[in-house]
């Protein structure tokens, strides 16, 4: 079954535990090919845990993750990157003392040198400031530049699915707008994305589809614009 309508990522009744504490309770969601799906929710709702479980750095304790039709629930993280799942993690997670260029090339670790060379040109075209600073240690970049580097590093893998965890966190409003316009641009070019955000309004207004996560469960889902109009969402997350 690899029909065109089948979602690229499909999550079914996924559970995750940290020790005896359950962080995800039977979460189900789907990310169709070429779409931008937003996942919003309060702190501690399990958004980051969900992305960690999709990337395989956190073990699932139940349920299934299917990617492009194949069950990847038990695959190790590096194998998932090879399949085309890249993540822009929360808090940027630079290789701080290493140069910007080293950070980027490490993003293409699962690919050939030639693929890395051509990918880095595209990343530099997207974020010219990274090219200017390519020899500088990543840890010395400003917060906004680090976020660009983190996105650039994930794009180096030329992923089929890009997971973004709070890309706007801790950035000045002007930079937030810049990061969001980058996400919109990527969506336009056909990149499939799952975007996690606390900034629910911004995320839902650019998303094709949205899910609201509450204490480890998906409680509301719908088209991005519809969710923005939903009374429950408005009250709980948009402060209206």
């Amino acid at each position: 079954m690899t029909g065109v309508n089948e979602p690229l990522l499909e999550i079914e009744r996924l559970c995750t535990h940290y020790g005896r504490i359950q962080a995800l309770r039977e979460v189900s969601l789907a990310v169709p090919r070429g779409s931008l799906v937003a996942l919003v929710g309060a702190n501690g709702a399990g958004k980051t845990t969900l992305l960690r479980t999709i990337s395989g750095v956190q073990e699932a304790s139940g349920g299934a993750i299917r990617f492009a039709g194949a069950d990847i629930t038990r695959l190790r993280s590096h194998a998932r990157v090879q399949l085309g799942i890249a993540q822009v993690p929360e808090g940027r997670q630079m290789f701080g003392p290493m140069s910007v260029e080293d950070n980027l090339f490490l993003g293409a670790y699962t690919r050939t040198r030639a693929q890395g060379e051509s990918a880095i040109e595209r990343v530099y075209a997207m974020f010219p400031v990274l090219k200017e600073r390519r020899a500088q240690p990543a840890g010395t970049l400003s917060g906004g530049q680090q976020q660009m580097l983190s996105i650039g590093r994930a794009l180096m893998a030329e992923p089929r699915l890009l997971l973004l965890d709070e890309p706007s966190m801790g950035l000045a409003p002007q930079l937030v707008a810049e990061i969001f316009s980058t996400v919109v641009e990527l969506a336009r070019s056909g990149t499939t994305m799952l975007l996690v955000e606390q900034n629910a309004y911004a995320a839902l207004s650019i998303a094709d589809f949205g899910y609201v996560l509450e204490t480890g469960r998906t409680v509301i889902s719908g088209r991005g614009r519809e969710l923005l109009a939903d009374e429950r969402v408005k009250q709980a997350y948009l402060g209206m």
Binding site: H78, P97, L106
Partner: peptide
């Protein structure tokens, strides 16, 4: 560089596909 990257940030190393 993969060994160094793992030393600097294990999570990021896993996320770029390094078999830690």
């Amino acid at each position: 560089k993969a060994v160094l990257a793992t030393a600097h940030n294990r999570l990021a190393a896993q996320l770029v596909g390094i078999n830690t």
